[in-house]
Amino acid sequence: MSIQHFRVALIPFFAAFCLPVFAHPETLVKVKDAEDQLGARVGYIELDLNSGKILESFRPEERFPMMSTFKVLLCGAVLSRVDAGQEQLGRRIHYSQNDLVEYSPVTEKHLTDGMTVRELCSAAITMSDNTAANLLLTTIGGPKELTAFLHNMGDHVTRLDRWEPELNEAIPNDERDTTMPAAMATTLRKLLTGELLTLASRQQLIDWMEADKVAGPLLRSALPAGWFIADKSGAGERGSRGIIAALGPDGKPSRIVVIYTTGSQATMDERNRQIAEIGASLIKHW
C-alpha cells in the first residue's frame, strides 16, 4: 500500500482519535458579512469528516447552483462504474471539434489522439474542462443518470439537468442544476469515506481534487503551510461562485467545507476574496 493510499485508508482512524471539535460562531459572522459585502445569498456548511456531524452552517438547506462543483460527483459516478466493471479508466475516447464547448483548455489539445477516461476526469476536476465533463456525462448516460446515481446514494436534493455550459445559467428560483450545502457536503463525505467506492477509487477521487489547479484564489489562499486540501470550485452566471473541499491540518483532511453564493453584482475577484476570507476565519478558529 502506498503512503497516499495509507493516508486515505486511515482518515477515519486518525479522526477518531482527534480531540473533540467545537464550532466557532466567528466564522458564521464572516459568512454573514460576506453576504453584506456581496449583496447576495451565501450558503455555508462545515462537517466533521469522521462523524458527519454538522459543526457550523448557514442557509444549509437553500438551493444554490452547483456550477462546476458537480464534476466531482460526476467522476465519482464514473469511478463507481469502474468498480462495477462497467468502465475502464484506460479506455480512450475520441471526439471532434464539434464536441468542444466553451472553456476546454485540455480537451482542445487532444482532438487528434483523444483522451482516456482517467485523463478526462483529471481534466474535468483539476482544470474544470467543460468538454471533458460533457464527454464523461455521455459515458454514464447524461445528466439524468448522474441525478439517479445521487438518488441511489441517498441524495434526493442534488440534481443535474443540463450539460456544460448551460448548467451554469443560475436563474433565480430555478431548481435545475442545483444542490443544497448540506446535501453536497453529505454526498461528498460519502464519496470520500464511505463504502460506495473502493479504496482505490476513493484515493483516485481525492487525488484529482488535491491536484486542483484553478481554485488557488479561494480556500487555498488562506491555508497555512502543512495543511491538506482537496477541492473543486465552480463559477456561473449572475454572480455565482462555489467551492467544495476536504481539508485539515497535519497533512490530512478532517472536515468537509461547502460554500456557495449566487445573485451578486460583485466582480469575480471580490467573490473570490470573500470566500478566501471565510476560509481564513475557519482556519483561525479551527
Rank of each mutant, 00 (worst) to 15 (best):
A133Y: 07
G141C: 02
A84R: 14
R41V: 03
H285L: 03
I244Q: 14
T261S: 02
G263P: 07
V117C: 07
E119K: 14
P65F: 08
G141E: 10
L73P: 11
I206K: 14
P105N: 02
W286Q: 05
T187Q: 00
R220M: 14
A40P: 02
W286R: 09
L111G: 03
L120V: 06
A230F: 11
K53G: 04
V117G: 02
E166Y: 14
E108M: 15
E56N: 01
M127N: 01
D212Y: 11
A266K: 00
R176W: 00
Q203P: 12
T262L: 11
K109A: 13
G251P: 05
V106K: 00
P172Q: 04
D129W: 10
I275P: 13
G142S: 06
E46H: 14
Y95F: 05
K144E: 13
V157T: 03
E102H: 07
L223R: 06
K32D: 01
S122F: 02
T107L: 02
H156D: 05
L247I: 13
T267S: 10
I206N: 00
S233W: 08
L111R: 01
S51F: 11
D113R: 04
E164H: 12
R162L: 09
L49W: 15
L136D: 04
K53F: 13
Q86L: 08
P105C: 12
L73G: 08
S233C: 01
A230N: 14
D269E: 15
V29Q: 03
R273C: 02
L74R: 09
T27F: 03
T147Y: 12
L120Y: 00
G263N: 03
W286F: 08
M66G: 05
E62K: 06
G90Q: 12
F58Y: 08
L47K: 02
F228C: 14
D33I: 06
V106Y: 09
L49N: 13
K252T: 02
E210P: 03
V258L: 08
K232R: 15
A215H: 14
Q88D: 12
S281L: 14
A230E: 07
L282F: 02
L55N: 08
N50A: 07
P253S: 11
D36R: 04
Q86G: 10
P25D: 08
G234Q: 01
T139S: 04
L55D: 01
T193W: 05
V82S: 09
G114I: 14
G39N: 10
D212N: 01
I278A: 14
Q86H: 07
G234C: 07
A245S: 07
R63F: 01
M209F: 06
I140Q: 11
L89V: 03
L100Q: 13
G141H: 13
D33C: 06
L28G: 07
W163A: 06
G142V: 12
E56W: 12
G236L: 09
D36Y: 01
Q37G: 08
L89K: 01
